[in-house]
Amino acid sequence: MESSGLLEAFLALRAALHRYLSLQGASPDEAEDILQEAGVKLAEKSLSSIENPRAYLYRMVHNLFVLHRRTASRRTRRDEAWAGVHSGDPPEMDETPSAEAGLIAREQLAILQSAISALPERTRTIFRRFRLEGVPQRQIAAELGISLSAVEKHLAKAYEAIAVRGRKIDGAAWSARHLMSKEGRHGQ
């Protein structure tokens, strides 16, 4: 498929991508902006052949959406901790001095370290290959001589442990954030 092929695929899937963005919580305007942006990027790109055009386009649009969402929320929730230390606070109270932010980052690192250290060695290795080194899961499976679904299970276990540990900083903040995000997109 030529680059024009990908653009054609994009046009054919435009409505589907719009629906996808709405499901992710994007407003109609936001979805439209993201699709415009994607269209421009695709027109500029010269891609020879794409095996899974839908996956490529969904990923592209999804990443743009995440960028939008996180930029918008950063405006209101500056220096937000990975475990959502301050996300339960109203925006006006979210004024973390930078020295304190450094402290929080260190604390987060310690928590993340303890979550990862507590993992079985194989799970730890697989998570490192996947998340830090960006190795495709198929390749990890082949290297270790295990099935793809086994790799998925190890990764799920690692994320589960990190998510559980993340809550230990401040479980209430996690819940509050979850509730907020359920009610709609936060941060205006």
Partner: peptide, 14 residues
């Protein structure tokens, strides 16, 4: 969607 966003944010933040 909210549950996914939660875990995706965590993944990005780490």
């Amino acid at each position: 969607a909210a549950a996914y966003r939660e875990i995706e944010d965590l993944d990005i933040d780490i």
